[in-house]
């Protein structure tokens, strides 16, 4: 890594890291009546109230904020990878049918096994995502690399539609008892975050990120074009498979713990690309931190804007992200 890239990476990452820290502190510290972190902890005297404050912080706000951050990091990185590999600015982590597959898995679990343990819904959603990705990728392999990118994109859209149709079919056949739960699942929900879930998601996301970052150079070459990449000595199809599998695993894991949250994977990479350029060696760390800060912040808003009612976090990501993104586009 040339020193200029390194310094750029360090600079952007440290700025975003500070932003992420700030968001986490704000999110953990903010309650319905403003910033009450100190209020809650420094209260002298009444022991039970201090215990309650710690419970709220440690059992509720902290795991939730951390899970949102991990999910945001995973989605943003997956977005960077998909946009680079498929050379398509509209690519997002859900492009290869993951959201449809994940939703189908979750709905199958919710409607057929009833109120199962959350692990049930999560693992079924994960399996659903993998089946969708497998179908899409199998189609691309069947065509033996001919028109690879278009095959992936079209197959992704179509497999996603198929999975959605199956999901709606199941919902209509089984009645509307679970409608509300399914709807909330599809809009994204962190209100039941806990540490085990966060740990699983964090492990997969971090491993995926390290794997992708170690090959960031090659991701840059894939972005230029298949022929140039091949000329530079890269096994193009193998590299593409590697990146797509990594991104799909990360996305599938995130979907399984948080539901389908749109916009993060599409917009955060673009925002950062506008700010720091398209070099994936800089972009991958920046997206990891930026996505984490973005989604943790969005979840904080979702939690507090209509308190004590909660909004779906997907609503906030789109409502906040879209105007900001348009502003960046115009300024450019």
């Amino acid at each position: 890594m040339p020193s200029s890239t390194l310094s750029k990476t360090i600079r952007s990452s440290s700025i975003l890291f500070v932003a992420l820290l700030g968001v986490v502190v704000i999110s953990v510290g903010f309650g319905a009546r403003g910033f009450d972190l100190c209020d809650m902890l420094c209260r002298i005297g009444d022991g039970s109230q201090t215990t309650q404050a710690w419970t709220i912080l440690l059992e509720y706000r902290l795991p939730r904020t951390l899970l949102a951050a991990v999910a945001g990091a995973g989605l943003a990185c997956a977005g960077v990878i998909f946009q680079a590999v498929l050379r398509n600015p509209l690519a997002d982590p859900y492009l290869v049918g993951i959201s449809g597959g994940g939703s189908l898995g979750a709905v199958v679990c919710i409607t057929m096994f009833g109120q199962n343990r959350l692990l049930g819904v999560s693992s079924m959603a994960f399996v659903g995502s993998l089946i969708a990705v497998g179908l899409v990728y199998g189609l691309a392999l069947l065509r033996k690399g001919a028109g690879y990118i278009n095959t992936i994109i079209l197959a992704g859209v179509i497999v996603g539609a198929l999975m959605n149709a199956l999901m709606l079919l199941i919902i209509s056949l089984t009645g509307s008892d679970e409608m509300q739960r399914i709807l909330y699942w599809m809009m994204g929900d962190f209100s039941f975050a806990d540490y085990p879930k966060g740990a699983v998601a964090a492990t997969v996301t971090c491993v995926g990120w390290i794997a992708a970052f170690s090959q960031a150079n090659r991701l840059n070459l894939l972005m230029v074009g298949d022929e140039s990449a091949a000329n530079l000595g890269i096994d193009v199809s193998r590299m593409r498979t590697f990146f797509i599998v990594v991104a799909a695993l990360v996305t599938g894991t995130v979907v399984s713990v948080s539901g389908t949250i749109g916009f993060v994977g599409l917009v955060v990479p673009h925002m950062l690309r506008l700010a720091i350029g398209p070099d994936n060696r800089v972009l991958l760390p920046a997206s990891f931190l930026g996505g984490a800060a973005f989604l943790a912040g969005a979840d904080c808003l979702a939690r507090l804007v209509a308190y004590p009612t909660e909004l779906p976090v997907g609503v906030i990501t789109a409502l906040v992200g879209a105007p900001f993104f348009l502003y960046l586009l115009l300024r450019r």
Binding site: G31, A32, Q52, T55, I56, E59, Y60, R61, G114, Q115, D177, E178, R181, Y184, S191, R303, Y307, P308, T309, E310, L311
Partner: peptide, 25 residues
């Protein structure tokens, strides 16, 4: 009927919690 913040539940700490068994086995 609306979604509710768990934090608010923890704060108000209700003496009783009633659950409709609609979505539970």
């Amino acid at each position: 009927y609306t979604r509710y913040s768990l934090e608010e539940v923890l704060k108000k700490d209700p003496e009783y919690i009633l659950i409709l068994d609609k979505e539970c086995k």
